[in-house]
Design a protein around this nucleic acid. Structure first.
Lengths: 363, 363
DNA sequence: CGCTTGTGGTTATACCTATTAGCGGGTAAG
DNA sequence: CTTACCCGCTAATAGGTATAACCACAAGCG
């Protein structure tokens, strides 16, 4: 009805008997620098309170060139249908850190190609531009789009190791390789000498780093009995039984879904961990605590780090490839993974028992 | 290195040999109204594509135009820590519908008071203005902030029934009351005559509508043995046992967390549903399929509807209290809930059995 | 010829903020 | 005696967009 218009600085200025510029200075605590006396400041603040002034964010953004928005682009859905949400922890960290810096998150829902898949340039122009920068996550490889993005000078950051020919891409990853050392040490000191490495079919950076790190760390400690690349559907009771029969006393699962599959396989074969076999997952389960002792992939911390890295890239005059600020380099360091706890790690089961008695149950 | 500055409308204009105003018109499809011929439009669009133009959100907002952004504000965290994410399905629907309209979502993470709680005006400014409108969800009551928001004429919409004195607030809710009819019918036709209603301590609109709807529907069909307001922690094996001993043959759980608690209580008391007692939950579990037959709260559809309602409010010249467009009214209708399936509904157990035999287990 | 109508745009302006340059007289430093 | 700097502010401006108001010209009509 009687909406008296949202008050702006000039309204305050009139009420306080000063100019709009003075109001702006007092508001932004530049009053000291420009020697506005306390009395005037007080008058202005009173007027602000009286009118209920709230700065117009659009005008601030326009003036300052920054919108205070951080884009988040996922090549898959942002809010997945399954309650089993792989991105959730990353987003958690991103949100948390964004809150701390007073930034808002833009989910680029509009970036969608007609066929339903996500694409940055699919809808014509790069809507991402409306944010100050973006964090990109997802497995799909879209090298050309990413190269173009970098070429435009748009500040962005990946979560997960990413390499595109000819373009230096800032990304946040975890130190998977280093995390393998405590895993190997834990197994070795428990007495294991023959270990099966259950590997995922998808060989991304994360998987390759785990395997390489594991093999390196295992050298001299124990024998990696087999590196078995296996789809979750093929992780069966029979497979587990065969591994134990072959002499493995411990199994290492490369990813959380392999760990889940392994849990089911163990159950149906009638084995328990660590009584019959020791198990460590090299990945944490997004659903919460996984079925086994596991390396703690610091997804939340990675999300936080991504925001920090992005801010550094934005401030670093947008050129991530420049020898640039040391902070960018430091922030791009892999994030430390916490070592696994030892619930499902024990002494090796006696071979005869592990090979024979459960078999009768399994068959 | 050679960043040629982000292109603006005047850059396009120069390239296409027209004025900036013309570019704006073509961009916003006002070209028809102002009779810009196809050929000119084409020239302008080509120039846009060539320069990779993206509108400046801040400028658009400042000017009062549309930014293509829909705000999402939650008084709690957007991405909660628990994998058990209550908002997820709403957000799913919101995202889905936003994609269809080519809108992007802004998660207002910055709206946070110093003490960590969320507040719209707490951080000093109403960042929401950046968006064309906002969808607000959350349980906290912040009547003054909401009233202020409405007073400013900012278009927003609630998910969940919301009432603030003196302000007409558009909201999206589900038709809980109507959903009670099939529940009652299902129980009654299975032969139940004495039913316990397990109610949540928090008596929000959703809870009150369920209870009232249930009582109304139950009139003449069966006796509502007791309406028991109970914290989840107090839903124990003993409580269940007492209910059955008192003659209840069915229990209705008002919320998903009560349903979960009830599941645990039944388990520990050694009862199964529907053999010993029939159970229906009046709420669906955000984690997926809940432990019992349940009314399907269409959260995803509500999310979609919220976007539609918001768009209507935005188009309705920002005054939701105006007698306004019929579409707003239609969109504000409660969303239909699908009736429960009947897995955990069966014939009433014989009273003697249900009262005696499990007791020995429970004690 | 004088008038209207239509065409294809252009000019000017408002939106609101943050910042730079400056006002003109006095005092301190060189 | 010149220069520098202080006071407490204000005026002017930029930032990119959307829109109302306008304009010059041409065609049609009587």
């Amino acid at each position: 009805m009687n909406r008296p218009r949202i008050p702006r600085q000039s309204d305050i200025a009139r009420l306080a008997g000063v100019s709009q510029a003075t109001v702006s200075m007092v508001l932004n605590d530049r009053a000291g620098a420009n020697r506005i006396p306390e009395t005037t400041q007080l008058r202005i603040r009173e007027a602000m309170a009286e009118l209920g002034y709230v700065p117009n964010i659009a005008a601030q953004s326009l003036r300052g060139g920054r919108s205070g928005l951080i884009g988040v682009h996922t090549f898959e859905r942002v809010f997945p249908t399954a309650p089993d949400d792989y991105y959730r922890e990353f987003l958690n960290g991103i949100e948390e850190r964004a809150v701390e810096s007073g930034l808002d998150l833009v989910l680029f829902a509009s970036t969608r190609k007609p066929d339903g898949t996500r694409s940055i340039y699919g809808s014509g122009s790069n809507r991402m531009r409306l944010a100050d920068g973006a964090i990109i996550l997802g497995f799909e490889k879209n090298d050309d789009e990413i190269a173009r993005l970098a070429d435009e000078g748009f500040p962005f950051v990946f979560i997960g190791h990413r390499e595109v020919a000819g373009v230096a891409i800032p990304f946040v990853t975890a130190d998977y390789a280093a995390a393998m050392t405590p895993v190997v040490r834990m197994l070795a000191s428990a007495g294991h000498r023959r270990v099966t490495y259950l590997a995922a079919p998808l060989r991304g950076f994360a998987q390759r780093e785990r395997l390489e790190g594991f093999e390196t760390a295992a050298t001299g400690a124990f024998e990696v009995l087999s590196v078995d690349v296996r789809d979750t559907a093929d992780v069966t009771a029979d497979w587990v039984t065969a591994q134990l029969a072959a002499g493995a006393t411990a199994i290492v699962a490369e990813t959380f879904d392999l760990a889940r599959a392994l849990r089911l396989a163990l159950d149906s074969a009638g084995f328990t961990a660590p009584a019959d076999v020791s198990v460590i997952s090299l990945d944490s389960d997004p659903r919460g605590e996984g079925p086994f002792s596991h390396v703690r992939v610091p997804r939340r911390a990675m999300g936080r780090r991504a925001v920090e890295l992005l801010l550094a890239v934005i401030d670093g005059e947008g050129d991530p490839s420049a020898s640039g600020s040391g902070s960018v380099r430091a922030l791009a360091e892999p994030v430390h993974c916490d070592p696994p706890t030892s619930e499902t790690v024990g002494a090796p089961a006696r071979q005869a028992a592990s090979a024979a008695s459960p078999l009768t149950i399994a068959l």
